[in-house]
Amino acid sequence: MDDVGSSRNAHAPLVDISRVSKSFGSNEVLKDVSLQVEKGQVVCIIGPSGSGKSTLLNCVNHLEPIDSGSIKTAGQYIGYRREKDGLHKLSEYAAAKQRRAVGMVFQQFNLFPHMTVRENVTFSQTHVLKRSRTEATTIAGDLLARVGLGEKGDAYPSSLSGGQQQRVAIARALALDPQVMLFDEPTSALDPELVDDVLVVMKKLAASGMTMLVVTHELGFAREVADVVVFMADGKIVETGDPTSVLENPVEARTRQFISRIH
């Protein structure tokens, strides 16, 4: 096992979550969780609220620190430095640099309300990646067209519908050329008729070969798009497998109970 240096190993997973545990105070939200996402895979995490699925996602790009174990994303332990005796926490500045490899889409969109749609998509390109303004604007134009909002560049987020805002958020995350995209319940805050617009964009993204880790309640999306479905409950991974086995013929009683309730 070679843990030092970048992973040039062709078989190394793009996201390698290994025996991760985490508590908020006395509440243990992740209990010895391990999960691997290969390059180009779409992995959907489903499970009841409070099962730790969103926390796990937040740990992947170090928005939340972990208590033990390790997460290696795109060849780096984001937020940590590997040494012989384990992982040592890095500064927020170093973590910021590592996070560029990971894009994230939030349940509440979290667009920057004081910037136009175009500025939302160009800001990190010019200020984090130091791209030129012209290059960033061209890339933003392409991405906004890709999510079906080519006309909305000059609008402010508050004038857009939830579905449009979420699609801008996807464009914003893609603008940094991430190797992995994390989606934290991307459609849970949307009106039912707007969900499909966002799912269509996500399906296109999956078809283009993007590696995606998606926390979702949309079992239809998981069935159609996911390579692997993970069912989590009480901070543990209960069941993992291809969509048919987990969603149609679950082995565990806990999974069966959850899926019958959501249908």
Binding site: E92, K97, F112, F123, H127, V128
Partner: peptide
């Protein structure tokens, strides 16, 4: 300013300084 803004800025690879002066403070 909502915590979501801080988290979004972080996820976009911004340093704490950049996030404070360009995302949090203007709001």
């Amino acid at each position: 300013v909502s915590d979501g803004q801080r988290r979004a800025a972080k996820a976009q690879g911004m340093t704490p300084m950049l996030s404070f002066f360009r995302i949090i403070f203007p709001q």
